[in-house]
Design a protein around this nucleic acid. Structure first.
Length: 490
RNA sequence: GCGGAAAUAGCUCAGCUGGUAGAGCAUCAGUUUCCCAAACUGAAGGCCGCGGGUUCGAAUCCCGUUUUCCGCUCCA
């Protein structure tokens, strides 16, 4: 990261805290690693991003519906999805090469080596010892075996190992009040499975016909080994996912469709296209036959914000297998009887809400030098798209007397049912404008002495700092148009 | 997890070789002004991340720990 970008990122984090967007969780207790809280303006901004996504995905697509599934799910779901098996390996690090290995893999390699050297006795003994240790989940025994058999890191050649640890990315807890005899359940590591297991419910109750999508916004939890870069990688995070169910064989067409549609959604916010890029996966996960990331150029480099994956019929097939229930779509239009009933393929779009939040904040953040001649001046402004701004407008009486506050309150009362507004009468008018700039309020409505005479007010625009005089009765329409979702969705 | 750096008021930071904390901005109250950070007066806010140790005495030295940032690593 260059010094300037490093500086910029630090300033954004400081700004986010100072102005009530993001706080570290449990801060007065020294914080909890990689967990963050959203403050008064952060919560508003986050909600607006959710709304933008929900409108674009659910409301504007007749064949996409939204659900809200529970965080707790049947433990077998995670076996079916592969998360239990894939997230439970015993790992060991070499302190010199700083490489991490699967402990059982290292031992397997050694066993193979013994066999090759004709030391079959040794191989067998080790194999048995390892199997016992793995079965008992005895990690210190695994470490002992690695030491006893003098296994060295192939990279550094040293035997300077850490303890063997299990990296399970899923958080677990007990289901049922009695600790004993209760079942272990997981906090979901992704929201997608909540959609897959409700595929039939939604399809039948909503009379959905393929192609159709199910969308969901919700929290997910991953016990990341390391979680850093502010809210980019958190242990508790929120996803906005849509699973689009399609006829097998049409996946490439739909993959291309959603790739384009999702980038369009991002760019509609006015973000410079140079800040975005696709990162197509060459190495695909076992369930996917195509995958791409939409990446955004953060101050610390291009990072994934959203993933678009062609997941084939992997998930539904797995759930068929594990649940014993048929998860199929019957297509009466299909003339070929053999192909009438099938497990749909899936195109997934999955965006990290917190990452989108960070993106929006960084993108909006601007330090402006407004000096003119000798007069030094600067301002901090968050140039949020008006539809996303936490506060849409602030009503300001020019002074605290002459009945201006009363008039300002009247105007505010008429507007506050439609818009999230603030009222401010403390300090000079210029200072109040700048305060609103810092939290990204796009419009300031100023009530002055002329307002008392002809009911006109000024609207001060955040980005240009230009004011226009309008009739107070027209504010609902004017502000309404300016902050409308039509500006980004139409 | 390894290595590096850091942690002092809401924010940014100062505090030299140890003697029980300061500034600017922000906040609050007031005076004045009345359309882009004005000025003035006053106030509030910190046991210096936390826990030990050395010392007559620790924000300052040592150890541990937590958190954050950077690099590596990891990332369905």
């Amino acid at each position: 990261m260059s010094k300037n970008n490093d500086e910029l990122f630090k300033n954004v984090i400081a700004h986010a805290k100072e102005y009530g967007f993001v706080f570290q969780s449990s801060e007065i207790y020294d914080g909890l690693s990689a967990v963050y809280d959203y403050g008064q303006y952060g919560a508003e901004l986050k909600n607006n991003i959710k709304t933008y996504w929900w409108k674009a995905m659910v409301q504007l697509n007749e064949n996409i519906v939204g659900i809200d599934s529970a965080i707790f799910m049947h433990p077998k779901i995670w076996e079916a999805s592969g998360h239990v098996a894939g997230f439970n390996d015993p790992m060991i690090d070499n302190k010199d090469s700083k490489k991490r290995y699967r402990a059982d893999q290292l031992l397997e390699d050694k066993i193979a080596k013994y066999d090759k050297e004709g030391k079959t006795d040794k191989a067998e003994t080790l194999q048995l010892a390892m199997d016992d240790a793995l079965k008992a989940e005895d990690f210190s025994r695994l470490k002992e075996l690695i030491e006893e058999h003098e296994i060295a890191d192939p990279v550094s050649g040293t035997r300077n190992w850490t303890e063997v640890r299990q990296f399970n990315l899923m958080f677990s807890t007990q289901f049922g009040a009695m600790a004993e005899g209760s079942d272990q359940v997981y906090l979901r590591p992704e929201t997608a499975q909540g959609i897959f297991v409700n595929f039939l419910n939604v399809q039948k109750s909503g009379r959905m016909k393929i192609p159709f999508g199910i969308a969901q916004i919700g929290k997910a939890f991953r016990n990341e080994v390391i979680a850093r870069q502010f809210i980019l990688r958190m242990r508790e995070f929120e996803q906005m996912e849509m699973q689009f169910f399609i006829k097998p064989g049409t996946e490439m067409e739909w993959f291309a469709h959603w790739k384009a549609a999702r980038l369009k959604w991002h760019l509609a916010l006015g973000t410079s296209p140079e800040k975005y890029r696709f990162h197509d996966h060459t190495k695909l996960a076992h369930y996917a036959n195509a995958a791409t990331d939409i990446e955004f150029e953060f101050p610390f480099g291009f990072k994934e914000v959203e993933g678009i994956h062609s997941r084939t019929d992997f998930d539904l097939s797995q759930h068929e297998k594990f649940s014993g229930k048929k998860l199929r779509f019957f297509d009466p239009q299909e003339t070929d009887k053999e192909k009438q009933s099938y497990v749909p393929y899936v195109i997934e779009t999955s965006i990290g809400l917190d990452r989108m939040f960070l993106l929006t904040l960084i993108n909006a953040y601007e330090e402006q030098d407004l000096s003119e001649g000798d007069k030094k001046d600067s301002r901090m402004v968050l140039k949020f798209p008006p539809a996303l701004a936490p506060i849409k407008a602030t009503v300001l009486p020019l002074t605290k007397k002459d009945g201006l506050p009363e008039k300002a309150r009247d105007i505010m009362d008429k507007l506050k049912l439609d818009f999230n507004l603030q009222y401010d009468e403390k300090d000079s008018i210029g200072k109040r404008y700048r305060r609103q700039d810092a939290i990204g309020t796009p419009f300031c409505i100023t009530v002055d002495h002329q307002t008392l005479e002809d009911n006109s007010v000024t609207i001060r625009h955040r980005d240009t700092m230009v004011q226009e005089r309008v009739n107070a009765d027209d504010l609902e329409k004017i502000i309404g148009d300016l902050v409308s979702w039509k500006k980004v969705l139409a």
